[in-house]
Every structure is written in C-alpha cells, then in structure tokens.
Amino acid sequence: MSTVPNQTEPDHSASARQIDSRHSIGKLFEFACWASTWVSLIVLLVLLASVGYQATGWLSWRFVTSLDGVKVQEAGLLAGLVGSFWLVSITALMSVPLGVGAAIYLEEYAKPTLFTRFIRLNIANLAGVPSIVYGILGFTLFVRMFGLPKATYAVSLGFTTFSLQLPLGRSIIAGAMTLTLLSLPVVIIAAQEALRSVPASVRHASYALGASKWQTIWFQVLPAAIPGILTGVILAMSRAIGESAPIAVLGAATYIGYVPGKFKSLSEVVTQPQKLAAAPFDQFTAVPLQIYNWVNEPKQEYQYVAAAGIVVLLAVLLLLNGSAIFIRQHFQKKIRW
C-alpha cells in the first residue's frame, strides 16, 4: 500500500489541512467575540457589585427623600433628584420639538444643496463635541447672557404672575437650555434616520390620494417614524441626566438647602401650585453633581454616600430607559411593514 504512489492522497490531506485550519480560525474568531462580550460584562458586574457593596447601609428611604445635611449621617439626595427631574423634563420639552422639527426640515424639505450638506456634517460633528464646551457656551449664553445688566420682568401666565430675571443666572432653565444644546444633535440625527427609514411607497401612496406635503408628513411619515425618534430621545435624555461637567461649569450649587420651587412638602404642590412656575428659575443641584461633590469629600464615609447616590442614579436611568422602551414597543406594535 505504502509503496504504491498515490496521486490523490497528498492533495486530499492538503485540502483536509486547509479545512482544519479554517475550522480552527472559525473557532478562534468565535472565542474572541465571546471573550470581548464577557470582558465588558464582567467589568460592568464588578462595578455594580462594588458600588452596591459600598452603598449598603447608606442607601435608605431617608437618603432619597431628605435634603442634604451638614453631617455624613444627614446626607440626602432629594434636592439633586428633583433638580435632575426638572432639568430632564425641560430639556426634553425643548429638545424634542426643536430636534424633530429640524430633522423634518432637513429630511423632507431642504433641497440637497452644498449648504444643507454643510449643516448635516456639522450636526454630526456637534454630537461629538465634549460636554464641557457646551457648559461654557451655556454659561456665556444663558447664565450671563453676555454680561447683560440684571433686570426683572413681570410675566403673567393668566392664573399666576411671576417675576422673570434676565440674565437667567444659575437657574434650572439655564441648565436645561444648555443640556438642550447638548442633546439636540443626537435627537436630530436619530430623528433623521427614523424619517429616512419610512419607505417612499408610504409617501407616494399618501400623495396619490391627494394629501399635501404637510399632511403626508404629519399623518403618515411622522407616526411611522415615532419608534425610531423615541430611541434617539431616550439616548439623548439618558446622556443629559448623567451629565455633570456642563452643569458644574454653569455654577449649579453643590449644596443646596431647598428643592426647586422651595417646596416644604409634597402637599404644597397642590396647595401652592404657583411655586411650580417659579421653580425653573431657582438655583439647583443635580444627582451627578452631588455625587461628584461627595466623592471629593475627604471623609471616608462620603465615599459610601456617593456610592448610594450612584445606585439611585443608575436606578433612575434604568427606569427612564425601561419606560421608554415600553412606550416604543407600544408604538411599534401598531406599525408593521
């Protein structure tokens, strides 16, 4: 057998070797992908575990529901939580209509000229600008308003009148405007993508029925794009709620003895609703800023307080993302291509 020269034998083993090596490369590739998944997962788990471990004993209902005190035992997150809530609400109220409006203009109306291409490119660039730059911009633009002399205006809302001070100073509204600048590019880009993914056939069918351009956009394109737009909004708002740098630059207080609107208790929201209108113009602090402040305290116990704050922030983020995903799913169910 071995003495008979066989032409096919070496060829066969060569191709078998080739297949073997392809198999092993395939295995290696799969392992590399598996490893990268687990590395990131393990890092996350270690982070969560260490933060959770440090926070035990410090994370309590009292911690979440009381204002910050002077002693470590009196540390509280309420001012930051309410401040962050106000910030994100106003940011969403401003950045969603502005961002979606801009995206609709760029996608549906703007002619593809050199100028609109320039704008598109710049929006993509703006999404990558460090947040502290936005903080500095917001400080000049909204907090100081280029050094405008202070003045107070009486603004009537019908049911109540409150005084509006310009420049806006270190107020929630100035912070929210800054965060709006920060999140606008993300919202615009996501909304553009979502609008682009609506099939042209839907637009054509609508036009063919005699719908005008705005009817087609408003009744067909926009509803079909909502799930995609929401995804972008969630991402942008999650980023905004976790930002500390621009808020710190704006000069938000790290310690503050009241919640925005200076409410003493929850029942005052009902009994003195006029305070709600004044709240956006109050000084404020935010959760990430309080955490940052605690981390910088020399006392060891404040590290645990900070950890407790981080756990609360993560929980809020999870809640925000979870509810947003739920809403998106709800919309998506109605839309099937």
Partner: peptide
Amino acid sequence: DVVSLRKRVGMVFQKSTPFPK
C-alpha cells in the same frame, strides 16, 4: 391644485402600499 387633481385621479400601485394603520 395638485391636491384636487389627485383627488379626481386616483392611483393604485404595483406593490400594495397599505399605511401602517
């Protein structure tokens, strides 16, 4: 007016294009 023209002249496409509604 294109809108009123298309109201008078309806169209059915090759690919059925129901709205996601």
